[in-house]
């Protein structure tokens, strides 16, 4: 046991399996524990009171939330007027958190009920439809970015001429924040999905070109030289040596970039007509269903994490020769 803890504190040491599992679990459990503490133990935060009975205070309503100070002031006012006030005359309440911090169990229930609750209006999408729409926008944006970004990146990484032609402008463009093109995208591409896809494209494409170029350049030069001495020439080399050589690293780059694409999603979906998961979140926030808001945000995180885990798993199958060093 002591050995285990000493390995936790030594730099760059491989941990044993139990430690790894323990720490991975803790990495999720600690924030959840903190959330539980704040939600369920009444004296850590709970700055408000949920009124259970308004007593003689005219503007208190049962079930509404008021700041704890306001509650105390109103209660003291009544006590001053009639010191022998009965329980019925005094306002009653329980300490509670503000509406924007729902408790874990409420969010957990919302994770399920958000899917089963029909939309307020019949022409509005269900949650699963919103989610699907978001995934489609991401997929298209990422697809177009890959379609152009990967070949350009590989060219830039292979030929110095292509590198000098492509990279300086890309380097400049990647500093332009993608959301800044929102209004322009709407003007050019209309108000529906096209401008959203364009924002995700702009957000990922320029980074992708540079990252793919850097990855391509990292390919062991000896492999290229060996192929030259074996008679591999010109453009054939890209297909026969460079592409297969960088494929595992390219795959890893794409996983990282897909994460970036998700971060652009929310801004992209606010452009033109709000849609997808963002529309759901803003709509629910408007109705003060913050449990649903939290549930939706968690869902984005879960989808991202699960896709990445699936991709990582497939990566191991796809590239059996690749060792992570």
């Amino acid at each position: 046991m002591n050995e285990r803890f000493s390995s936790w504190a030594s730099p760059r040491t491989e941990l044993d399996k139990t430690s790894k599992r323990l720490l991975t679990a803790a990495s999720f459990l600690l924030p959840i524990l903190l959330w539980c503490l704040v939600s369920y133990s009444p004296y850590i935060w709970h700055p408000q009171m949920e009124i259970t009975s308004p007593g003689q205070v005219s503007y208190f309503r049962e079930g509404s939330l008021v700041d704890r100070e306001v509650f105390e002031i109103e209660r003291n006012k009544i006590l001053e007027k009639t010191p022998e006030a009965t329980v019925e005359q005094l306002p009653q309440g329980i300490p509670s958190n503000p509406v924007y911090l729902p408790a874990p169990h409420e969010v957990m229930t919302a994770m399920y009920t958000a899917f089963t609750t029909p939309p307020k209006r019949s022409n509005e999408p269900w949650l699963h439809e919103s989610l699907l729409h978001s995934i489609q926008v991401i997929a298209w944006g990422f697809f177009w970015a890959m379609l152009f970004g990967v070949p350009l990146g590989i060219l830039a990484g292979t030929y110095s001429s292509a590198s000098y032609l492509i990279e300086p402008f890309t380097e400049f463009f990647r500093y332009l924040p993608a959301p800044a093109f929102g209004a322009l995208a709407v003007a050019v591409l209309g108000i529906y999905d096209a401008p959203k896809i364009a924002i995700i494209f702009i957000g990922t494409f320029f980074q992708m070109v540079l990252i793919v170029a850097a990855t391509t350049r990292k390919l062991n030069i000896a492999l290229i030289e060996a192929s030259l001495t074996l008679g591999c020439k010109g453009r054939r080399m890209i297909g026969k040596v460079i592409l297969p050589g960088v494929l595992p690293d390219l795959y890893r780059d794409m996983r990282i970039l897909l994460g970036w694409a998700w971060t652009y999603l929310i801004v992209a979906e606010l452009i033109g007509t709000s849609s997808g998961i963002t529309w759901f979140i803003t709509q629910q926030a408007r109705y003060k269903n913050f449990d649903n808001v939290f549930a939706a945000i968690l869902m984005i995180g879960l989808i991202g994490l699960i896709t990445d885990m699936i991709l990582a798993h497939f990566g191991k199958r796809l590239f059996p020769w690749h060792q992570n060093k």
């Binding site: 062991n220 000896a222 050589g245 494929l247 690749h322």
Partner: peptide, 9 residues
């Protein structure tokens, strides 16, 4: 070559 230059894939 001096370094291993087999195609790993």
């Amino acid at each position: 070559f001096q370094s291993y230059s087999l195609f790993p894939w």
